[in-house]
Computed example of a mutant assay.
Amino acid sequence: MCNDYRSRVDLDTIRQDFSDIKVRIRFPEGIPNLEPRDGIKITDIGAIVRAAPDEPGTADLVQRRWSWPGPNKQPVYNFRSDGREFMNGRCLIIADGFYEFTAPEDRKAKRKHKWLFTKADEPWFCIAGIWRSTDVGEAFTMLTTEPGPDVAPYHNRQIVVLHRADWTRWLDPKVPARELLRPLAAGSLRVEQVA
């Protein structure tokens, strides 16, 4: 499953693109320094957007840890969405690419192939996530679903990349999760081998 993603999105772009869908972004902890990052890995800090509880039409952008310790102390960085509703703690994870890894054809080779997935029609996107308070502080995880046709050749699950029109719907817990947590149609993602 996805254990590495990319985010090169700047704050002005985030603020403008959310404004275009009628959501005002605020920074309750101050304006963060979002440097372009080619690799955000498990336990790293990443930018998330979550509904502002006190102001409709507004969302908070904060930076939080990716993953929390599970019952067996292993990091919970991906979470199966199948059959779940997620009535609270919904968030959007800011990204412009995610990686999957496959075993090399040559079984003697030790290094896996690394594949970068980006949106075919948009320069950046949001991944459906949930956040919660844990013993390591507030943290988020990515939701997964069955793989779509673009991801299936590389992995048997995929993270949920939301359509831009669904960002505000995902932040609204009254919208049933099953309407949104699904794979993208064929041709929605570009795939490039990067290692």
Rank of each mutant, 00 (worst) to 15 (best):
F79C: 08
F125V: 08
N88E: 12
E29G: 05
R111F: 08
R182N: 03
Q158N: 06
Y77E: 12
L171S: 02
D54A: 15
W167S: 04
K119C: 02
K110Q: 03
A165R: 13
D121K: 10
D121Q: 13
W167V: 07
K112M: 03
F98P: 00
A120W: 06
K22L: 14
H155K: 01
G97I: 02
L61R: 05
L11K: 04
P176D: 13
I127A: 00
V23L: 14
A177L: 11
V160Y: 00
E100D: 08
I45F: 08
V136G: 01
G89A: 11
G46K: 01
D106C: 11
D38L: 12
S81N: 10
R64T: 13
L116F: 00
R164S: 06
P75Q: 13
R84M: 15
R24M: 11
A95W: 02
I25T: 04
R107P: 01
G83A: 15
K119F: 08
P149N: 04
R37V: 14
I93K: 02
I130D: 01
A185E: 06
D96Q: 01
A195H: 07
P123W: 05
S7M: 13
P173M: 13
T58Q: 09
F101N: 04
P56D: 10
R80K: 14
G70V: 09
N78H: 05
R157S: 05
S7H: 10
V160S: 03
F86T: 11
R37F: 08
D172Y: 06
F18S: 03
T141D: 07
P149R: 00
R169M: 02
G70Y: 09
Y5L: 15
D172R: 11
G137N: 03
P75V: 14
L181Q: 04
Q16V: 12
R50E: 05
M87F: 07
W66E: 10
Q74T: 13
E55V: 13
D60F: 10
W170L: 07
M1S: 11
E179N: 08
P36N: 04
T144G: 01
E29N: 09
E55D: 11
F125T: 05
K174E: 14
W170R: 03
V175Q: 12
A59N: 04
R90D: 06
Q74W: 08
H155C: 08
R164N: 05
V191K: 04
M142V: 02
K174Y: 10
A47P: 06
G83W: 11
A152G: 05
